[in-house]
């Protein structure tokens, strides 16, 4: 209705976008630690990336629980009598728990210097880590009534966002330790940011040319305050600028790469926030 006397809220607050950000980084850092068993250049990241991944996993869990209106009931999500497998949240809860369990086991095996088991756990953990951005994408995709969210792109976009933000954090962890690692992380950032950019272009296209709700959402996301965050910070400053920077000679040096990493992190947060909020604005008027 155009005129109204009752107003509606957005159900999912910005806390979720912080969660998307931290869990995405946690997943990608675990993957970097796994790579260290197979690619020598990632060796300096094995322990540091894993520890930070674990800390971020704990923070993400706390964020998720604190956003529930009944935080003490979060255990319900592990109750087999309650679990509803048509909900991506149920899968996500199990994915998070199993990722946490594998991370703990990985920690102990690394401490014991048990290389064989550590490798196996690293691979298993990486597969579970891949599930985290995928399920967060599905969390949004399944809501058929929400513009922007309801596209098959979301799970893949979240995987790319996870890689880009994770590689950016990893480049800070790596510092100037190894030239080869430096080259690899630059490539990671470049390719995943490129993938994010390509997906955003198609997302913008389909949203702008969509039905009435989508078209209005496009207008909200490209103008006003949200337009500043989405287009200005997310796309231009946080995706396009770092890609150009990484391609320029300065981007191959450590200082340039750090600057690009910082921009990618800011952009990654802005994109997650605007996608979360953007999908909810129009319906508050229905």
């Amino acid at each position: 209705m155009g005129d109204f006397n009752i107003f509606h809220h957005m159900p999912w607050s910005s806390t979720y976008s912080i969660y998307f950000f931290t869990i995405g980084i946690s997943a990608a850092l675990f993957f970097m630690s796994t790579l260290s068993w197979y690619r020598e250049e990632f060796r300096p990241l094995r322990a540091s990336a894993f520890y930070l991944s674990f800390v971020l996993l704990a923070i993400s869990g706390l964020l998720l629980i604190s956003d529930l209106s009944k935080p003490a009931r979060f255990l319900n999500i592990m109750n087999p009598a309650y679990l509803n497998f048509t909900s991506p949240l149920a899968w996500g809860g199990l994915n998070l728990l199993s990722f946490g369990a594998v991370s703990v086991a990985y920690f102990f095996m690394m401490r014991k210097n048990d290389e064989g088991t550590s490798r196996k756990l690293a691979v298993l953990g990486s597969l579970l880590a891949l599930g985290l951005p995928i399920y967060t994408g599905f969390d949004l995709t399944v809501h058929q009534n929400r513009p922007v969210w309801n596209t098959p792109l979301m799970p893949i976009l979240f995987v790319a966002l996870s890689l880009v933000s994770g590689a950016a954090v990893a480049s800070f962890l790596a510092g100037g330790k190894s030239e080869k690692l430096h080259v690899m992380l630059r490539r990671f950032m470049l390719w995943s940011a490129g993938a994010v950019g390509a997906m955003l272009i198609s997302l913008l296209g389909t949203t702008a040319y969509g039905g009435s709700g989508q078209e209005l959402t496009f207008m909200f996301m490209t103008s006003g305050a949200l337009g500043g965050i989405f287009i200005g910070v997310g796309i231009l400053l946080g995706t396009a600028a770092p890609i150009l920077l990484l391609l320029a000679p300065f981007g191959r040096q450590q200082g340039g790469m750090m600057l690009a990493a910082l921009l990618l992190l800011v952009g990654g947060m802005a994109l997650r926030y605007s996608i979360l909020v953007g999908g909810q604005i129009v319906q508050t008027y229905f």
């Binding site: 529930l68 209106s69 009944k70 909900s87 009534n145 508050t284």
Partner: peptide, 18 residues
Amino acid sequence: DRCIGCKACMASCPYNAR
């Protein structure tokens, strides 16, 4: 007594009924 307050149902209802 089961609801954990994740608000997924609110996000999925196209009618703001929740």
